[in-house]
């Protein structure tokens, strides 16, 4: 169990290992999906995300989040690792509501960071079990605060980086940013895997 991955996590084809100087000389995670599946994902045009939301990404998110296929957290570990490797700000993943987390059995945003070996801390907690994806734009903008600080945690005068899986209108990240800035953070930036 949980051995080296020899078959693509998405299409179950055998992964053809291509040897290159880059793989020999740099430290990289072994690939978890085949080149054909990787080519389906489009790079994002914006600087605050890695990928664009497209059909392949929709299928990926469905299997990862709703079918709860945790193994898929590893698919983008190389890209996430490469992006955060030299990050000096403190990374905070967007939290899930504890009840939702029990229902899903894992926190999908934290698992992405864990798979990429990126250290993070958690200062926030979610106040509602409602999801953003069920609401329309107006409803999303006019809601009570989605997050609060975990009791007893201190926000220091430092740089923070909020990480989420997907950004559509940006409301979630906006709420979290406000909480951190109000609590005395020096600067808060945001980054997502996918831009909607």
């Amino acid at each position: 169990m949980n051995k080296d991955i020899t078959h693509c996590l998405l299409c179950a084809q055998r992964i053809q290992a291509v040897i290159s100087w880059r793989i020999l000389l740099t430290k990289q995670f072994p690939p978890t999906i085949c080149d054909r599946c990787m080519a389906q994902f489009e790079d994002s045009s914006c600087a605050f995300a890695i990928y664009k939301y497209n059909e392949a990404m929709k299928v990926y998110l469905h299997q990862y989040k709703f079918l709860q296929d945790i193994a898929l957290a590893k698919v983008f570990r190389q890209q996430i690792h490469a992006h955060f490797r030299k990050e000096r700000a403190i990374i905070i993943p967007i939290p899930m509501h504890p009840l939702k987390q029990i229902e899903r059995t894992f926190s999908h945003v934290e698992e992405l960071l864990k798979a990429a070996c990126i250290p993070y801390i958690q200062l926030l907690e979610k106040t509602t079990t409602e999801t953003q994806s069920t609401k329309n734009r107006e409803q999303r903008i006019q809601v009570a605060p989605l997050f609060r600080l975990i009791a007893g945690r201190q926000v220091e005068y430092q740089d923070y980086l909020l990480f989420d899986d997907i950004k559509t209108t940006g409301t979630t990240l906006q709420h979290a940013t406000t909480i951190l800035l109000d609590a005395g953070a020096k600067n808060v930036r945001t980054f997502t895997l996918i831009s909607g």
Binding site: L67, I70, A71, S107
Partner: peptide, 29 residues
Amino acid sequence: RHQFILFDCAKCQKTCVYCRHCIKMGRVS
């Protein structure tokens, strides 16, 4: 065995295992 994945289950607070072979029909862990 390669198609079984261990994970930290938030529901049980311990390490659980699930089957990837039939994942498309809803996860069996």
